[in-house]
Amino acid sequence: MNSPLPDLVLEPVIRNALAEDLGTYGDITTRTVIPADVTYTARLNAREAGVVSGMQIARIAFHLVDPALKIETLIADGQPCAKDDVLMTIEGSAASILSGERVALNFAGRLTGIATMTASYVAETEGTDCRITCTRKTTPGLRLVEKQAVLHGGGFNHRFSLSDAILIKDNHIAAAGGISPVLEAVKAQASHMMRVEIEVDTLEQLEQVLEIGGADVVLLDNMDTPTLEKAVAMNAGKLVLEASGNMTLPRVAEVAATGVHYISSGALTHSAKTLDLGLDF
């Protein structure tokens, strides 16, 4: 598993979520009914099994509300959990814990769901060299943390933004006048430090890419499994191949077996089920 991101990088996203939840006047319910000197120990529990993500974020959320809270993470990001496992304990001001509870749970449940779904995809690639990767189909404003959750599930990250790499899609090809013009433009203008990926829909387009050159990666879009097998044979190890489009869980194993290097799925971040977590005093 990758090393955790610095807290400083994650804090702006979490601050925005806390500001949204606390509103203009803070947690008026807690402030009204809970005396300031009441302390408790709360447990963040898993109510179903999965792969944990969001514990770093939950810790930051509680500490942004109250730096005096004592927090112990019992199951770290990237580790499996069983139903009823205690993932984290939070000790200190009851009011502070209650004020940070929903934001911490929203992040942890959402991200654990993504990590869990990613892990199920990764498991289907066992015995192959294929890697599972996410896409830019993320929740606006939450891309950083959702992509981190993919890593916690054993997957890999695709581009974080449009500026990370050149990815030539079908609309770029159509607007530029074909595969040859876009690849010639890349060869003439792209930095030598920039990776280049191009999407193809047919084996004829793949043949063009292989002949013209200029790409590092080919995205094989919405191809059935026999066509993917032919694409791998045509490529003969020259370029990195990524299979994308309709990459559902039941299909992952057979696609990985074709010899493609990556399978990308937007579902990892746009369709993952939030895992049921709870905070109990």
Rank of each mutant, 00 (worst) to 15 (best):
L64T: 05
V51N: 03
S264C: 09
V186P: 05
V150G: 01
A190V: 13
G214D: 07
A36D: 15
I71P: 06
V196D: 08
A243P: 04
F156P: 00
D201Q: 15
A233L: 14
N16S: 13
P140C: 05
T202H: 12
E229V: 07
A236T: 02
V52F: 07
G109Y: 10
G127L: 10
R136Q: 07
L5W: 04
T128C: 08
Q56M: 00
N171A: 04
K238T: 15
A149H: 03
K230H: 04
E11T: 10
G155N: 09
G178A: 13
M247E: 06
R31V: 02
V217C: 07
L64Y: 13
T41I: 10
A82T: 11
A119S: 14
E199C: 01
L277M: 06
G50S: 01
V51H: 09
A46Q: 01
M223E: 04
L162A: 04
A42V: 05
N2R: 12
G92W: 11
V103R: 05
I97Q: 06
M247R: 08
K70N: 03
G153F: 01
L22T: 05
G153C: 04
H172W: 00
Y121L: 03
L74G: 12
A243K: 10
T225W: 09
K169Y: 01
T258V: 06
H192T: 14
Y25P: 00
V217M: 13
E146C: 09
A165M: 14
S264T: 08
K147H: 09
G278K: 08
V200P: 13
L228Y: 07
G154K: 07
L268P: 07
R102Q: 12
I173P: 00
T116C: 10
P80S: 12
E126Q: 15
T41G: 01
G259A: 06
M234C: 04
A256Q: 02
L74W: 07
I34N: 05
V103A: 04
A42I: 06
F160H: 14
V209Q: 15
S96H: 06
A256G: 10
L228G: 08
I34C: 11
I97Y: 09
V51R: 12
A108G: 02
L87I: 02
A49T: 04
R143H: 09
T39G: 00
P67D: 10
L44I: 12
L277Q: 04
I179C: 02
A231R: 08
